[in-house]
Design a binder for these strands. Structure first.
Lengths: 154, 154
DNA sequence: CTTATTTCTTAATCTAAGTTAATAGATACT
DNA sequence: AGTATCTATTAACTTAGATTAAGAAATAAG
């Protein structure tokens, strides 16, 4: 658990890196964000004083987010495996990582992309619930999902 | 930690209730969802076998989600305060609850509603970062945010 | 102070997705 | 089997928000 200071604009973590950390902000302001295929930024979270920010993923998985400083900041750097010692933490990390991916999807992907991601990630659920519920989960109208499926197989 | 069986269609939890539980699905399929002002359903999560589902909120706060069974199911009911015994769990619950609200916002609120919610929830951050970053966080174009602000104060 | 870079606003299109409505398939119900 | 309810499809129309582009404000930098 190191304490570091970083200047405005400095990058703490790049998407794709391993051994990502969790940062607790003592003073200043950090943010995390993703870049989509077109290079567009999507801000995932702001972390002002007393907030914690980090990829909600196990440390052995390449991270999804960039983290940088929007102001000169003073932060604690927390190693993820330390946190993991507590029981049941893995379950919380899993729930967080599912929600993190969901937010990124909702912010940066089109209806078609969200549907295709769902098909690949939860093929089982696709079979078990009515299509209008899939649409509701994806945040689109059932009519739109119907249209997407037709247009795709043409 | 009770074990219960529920029939397809049965409701386990209503939005607004206190002392919400966490459910671990042994068999069957549960889902959680919200209702917006127009009565429209927004599915937050599906929970098939071996998934855990529940409002990511402390048990003393009224819950936001409805939870019901999409298939006959066999589930463990977990009391939240038991989980809370572990250290640092409160921090995880906080991060989960922020993400849960974020997903609900992205799925069910218009750009204007998302902005107004942000203004009320993070007035501090509003002052500290450029507007285009607020737009990026909200999932809208900076031009749209500019337009919304103008149209509102008319 | 002056120039350069970044941020914000405005307006004119354009498009993805919502809404409405009507029809057809499925499932369930008696 | 026959009616009712729920689910999926299709098409016409509407709309929220994206995109593009240009100019104005503001901030930073020499």
């Amino acid at each position: 658990m190191r304490r570091i200071t970083i200047k405005k604009g400095a990058l703490l973590q790049k998407s794709g890196e391993l051994d990502s950390k969790v940062y607790h902000v003592n003073s200043g302001l950090l943010r995390s964000y993703t870049l989509d295929e077109k290079g567009k930024e999507h801000i995932f979270m702001f972390a002002p004083e007393n907030w914690t920010i980090g990829d909600s993923l196990p440390p052995d998985v390449p991270c999804e987010l960039y983290i940088d400083a929007l102001e000169d900041s003073d932060v604690w750097v927390l190693q993820k495996d330390i946190q993991r010692e507590a029981p049941n933490i893995a379950a919380f990390i899993k729930r967080l990582s599912v929600l993190q991916k969901r937010v990124i999807m909702l912010m940066s992907a089109s209806a078609t992309e969200r549907f295709e991601h769902f098909e690949q990630t939860y093929p089982d659920i696709l079979q078990r619930v009515p299509q209008k519920m899939i649409a509701s989960y994806l945040g689109i109208a059932p009519e739109t999902l119907s249209k997407l499926k037709r247009e795709r197989h043409k």
